[in-house]
Each structure stands twice: as structure tokens, then as C-alpha cells.
Amino acid sequence: MKSVRTCLVVDDSRVMRKVAIRIVEQLDFDGIEAGDGLEALTYCRAAMPDAILLDWSMPVMDGIEFLRQLRAEPNGAKPVVVFCSAESRPERIRLAIDHGAAEYIMKPFDGDIIASKFEAVGLI
């Protein structure tokens, strides 16, 4: 039996997490959530997800720092990371890509945009 793939949604806004979880579940992912980078890292150490939808600006640990530490973990190269942030300055987006994000979504987004980006990186 094919196991269900997981997508970890990391965002400090509860509302944003709910919206994103609903979208990734429509794309046949098992959606799980974390409120900041540290919480996300704890989750990843227990079970690496297949995909991570990652906010940038968060308390405790931000998206870039989380990504840096994730990639240093055993098996930390596995998750496909898609940034999802209100940050839309080109040089900042490039920074996220240089840290190993596969794609980048600028907020506000909708289901079509997430589906389009997931398709572009081969997740669906």
C-alpha cells in the first residue's frame, strides 16, 4: 500500500496554517502544522515530511534559520521546501532560494498557486 505523503505547514498565523492545510490536503498530502521554526525542527527530527510549506518571519526561529538547521540534520535534504511568505523583494527571494528552497510563493496566494508551484517542483 502506498503510504500517504506528509506536508508540514510552518507559519505563526493559525488562520494561515488552516488555509494552507486545507489546500495541501486537497492535493492528497497529510497536512501537519508547526507555529515556528523550532517546533518544525522538532517535528522533522522525529519524522521527516515529504514537503514543507515555510513562512519566513516567525517568532523563536525564522524560516531561513530553520532551513539552515534542517539541511544539517541527518536525512534533512529529503523534504522539498517551498517558501510561503509576504516577503516579495527579489533579493530576499533569492536568499531563500540560495538556502535550498525549491520554490517560493508570495503571499497572498490561492489554491491554484500552491498547486502550480507543487507541480513545478514535482510534488504532484
Binding site: R89, I93, I105, P108, I113, K117
Partner: peptide, 20 residues
Amino acid sequence: THFEVQRGLPIRRLLAHFDK
């Protein structure tokens, strides 16, 4: 628009070929 450039356009292409 913000929405148009996020449909089908890979982020690397956006950065390489467009100015904000």
C-alpha cells in the same frame, strides 16, 4: 500581476527575467 507571475512561472525564471 502578483497572481499572474505565480501561475506556471518558476521562481528562478521570475528572478532571472522580471523586475519588480
